[in-house]
Simulated assay, not measured.
Amino acid sequence: MLVDPVSSGRFARSLLDPEAPVPDGLVSHHGGAVERRFAVYRNNAAVSLVDALASIFPTVQNLVGEEFFRAMAHLYVRAHPPRSPLIFTYGEDFAGFIEQFPPAEPIPFLADVARLERLWLDSFHSADTPPLDPACLSSVPPERLEDQCFQPHPAARLLSTAHAAASITIRDRAGESLSDINPMLPEAALITRPACDVAINRLSPGGHTFFHALMAGRPLGEACGEAIKVEAESDISALLTLALTSGAFADLVDNSAKGE
């Protein structure tokens, strides 16, 4: 099939809409009818995008079943054609689509799981940068510890959800049962990529506040104080260990030195 450049926009719009007519300017190499060949091409394009969504959101598909997922994904594909030739960027607004998709209303946590899975892929494809050396604080004088600022790693992501998206995704991807999870409990998650493997870490409310402050460039002392305000029993030692070993940060900056 050949398409006139003038008709390329109509071609793209018609490709993902099974009810749209064959676009003007489309002809076969021998000048014959193209309806059947375009229908095959249209189907292959849609199926490839649905397959891409299934690979990006495996836990979402497991939660609703393959038949439901593919039907929902087909509707998404029709309404949201790709904006980039890079297929791993597709589905950035899939969670929002799920949230407005009436058949998914009985599964209110589904959109949050999709948000987490999208961040997992974003983390996986982020720039390569050496993570922070866990021993970096050993050379910092004790009186300057609270002034240390952490530079986020390009692969680090932070997400707070109204549902137990982190627990669900971690368990499902490990092939474990979800039977004892209350999906309606709010959770926060830190997504990192240590040693090239993406990891999801569940965070307490204080932990989320701690990492949110650090990733916003606030000094360690302020991050600790904010965490304790939100959750008095926050384990600062455990949170600092996670900050140093999770791959969430790439560098350390002494904020006290700025005033010297």
Rank of each mutant, 00 (worst) to 15 (best):
residue 192 T to N: 05
residue 125 H to G: 00
residue 5 P to S: 02
residue 43 N to K: 13
residue 163 H to M: 03
residue 24 D to M: 03
residue 54 A to P: 05
residue 220 L to M: 09
residue 62 N to K: 15
residue 17 D to N: 15
residue 13 R to V: 00
residue 133 D to K: 06
residue 177 S to W: 07
residue 138 S to R: 15
residue 254 D to G: 05
residue 18 P to R: 14
residue 129 T to M: 12
residue 6 V to E: 06
residue 225 G to N: 14
residue 92 E to V: 06
residue 82 P to W: 11
residue 160 S to A: 12
residue 126 S to D: 12
residue 240 L to A: 01
residue 72 M to C: 13
residue 3 V to G: 01
residue 165 A to N: 10
residue 235 D to W: 11
residue 21 P to A: 15
residue 37 R to V: 01
residue 193 R to K: 14
residue 41 Y to M: 04
residue 45 A to Q: 11
residue 80 H to A: 14
residue 143 E to A: 13
residue 156 A to S: 14
residue 225 G to D: 13
residue 118 R to D: 01
residue 104 A to T: 06
residue 55 S to H: 14
residue 4 D to G: 02
residue 4 D to Q: 12
residue 43 N to H: 14
residue 5 P to V: 00
residue 208 H to F: 15
residue 13 R to T: 04
residue 88 F to V: 11
residue 5 P to K: 01
residue 208 H to A: 15
residue 219 P to V: 09
residue 84 S to F: 08
residue 63 L to N: 03
residue 71 A to W: 08
residue 129 T to Q: 14
residue 36 R to H: 10
residue 117 E to Q: 09
residue 13 R to P: 01
residue 19 E to M: 07
residue 128 D to Y: 13
residue 245 T to Y: 05
residue 186 P to V: 08
residue 195 A to M: 10
residue 108 P to I: 02
residue 19 E to Y: 06
residue 74 H to K: 15
residue 115 R to Q: 12
residue 64 V to Q: 10
residue 241 T to P: 00
residue 197 D to Y: 09
residue 174 A to H: 11
residue 149 C to K: 15
residue 89 T to I: 01
residue 69 F to S: 02
residue 17 D to W: 07
residue 50 V to Q: 12
residue 14 S to W: 03
residue 90 Y to M: 07
residue 79 A to P: 02
residue 181 I to Y: 09
residue 122 D to M: 14
residue 26 L to A: 07
residue 165 A to Q: 09
residue 144 R to A: 07
residue 72 M to E: 07
residue 251 D to L: 03
residue 215 M to A: 11
residue 229 K to P: 00
residue 72 M to F: 11
residue 19 E to P: 00
residue 26 L to M: 10
residue 85 P to I: 10
residue 112 D to T: 05
residue 245 T to K: 10
residue 136 C to F: 01
residue 33 A to R: 11
residue 139 S to V: 08
residue 204 S to I: 04
residue 70 R to A: 04
residue 195 A to D: 14
residue 42 R to S: 15
residue 137 L to G: 02
residue 14 S to N: 06
residue 23 P to D: 00
residue 121 L to Q: 06
residue 185 L to C: 06
residue 179 S to T: 02
residue 177 S to R: 12
residue 87 I to N: 05
